[in-house]
Design a binder for these strands. Structure first.
Lengths: 96, 96
DNA sequence: CAACATTTGTACGTATGTATC
DNA sequence: AGATACATACGTACAAATGTT
């Protein structure tokens, strides 16, 4: 079961909402919704778009940060890593 | 003697309570009370509904998990498998 | 400089579920 | 049966840094 960029979060399913959101964002990044070194929507914006609590958004972002897909700049935003497409859930290789 | 969705547990009969509950739940799933990928009531809820100890509920769930009818997601819930209707106990079912 | 908005960081409390003892 | 632990999610509030007006 793959996640698409336009999917909504299913709160009653077996997959946790933060995992779903992570895969949704991953799909949108892979599709090129936001270019490398560009900021994705703010946490507050993602809360508005997808409905979850901010805690859930942050958890989803954390997954992608650990996968090297995103990186966070405090008080600035969350950005798409340069080689975000290469990074997959398997090996978590993040550079700092 | 078949079990129906509305049956109660008979604690004085020859069939163990957990077996009865398993068949009750199986009937409810077959009847479509919960769709595939949807969660069945929580263990605590089933305790309330049918009266047994939680141990009994868990044992019943275990039977259906081994039959491929249900699957458990830790910290999330117990869900109906997609092809739950196909899976039947058969005579080769394993006991534990 | 001051005031404000934006964004991430952190913390607390509540609720639900399973896991374990 | 009951207690405790852990994971997840929601809501709220405030702090800190940055950017804008």
């Amino acid at each position: 079961m793959e996640f698409g960029p336009d999917d909504q979060i299913d709160y009653d399913g077996p997959v946790t909402p933060y995992r779903q959101l992570a895969e949704i964002l991953r799909a949108r990044i892979a599709r090129g919704d936001w270019a490398p070194n560009r900021a994705i929507p703010s946490e507050a914006r993602l809360v508005q778009e997808y409905g979850p609590a901010r805690t859930t958004v942050r958890r989803a972002i954390k997954v992608l940060v650990e996968d090297g897909v995103l990186f966070v700049v405090p008080q600035r935003g969350t950005f798409v890593a340069k080689r975000s497409a290469d990074n997959r859930p398997g090996e978590a290789g993040q550079e700092s």
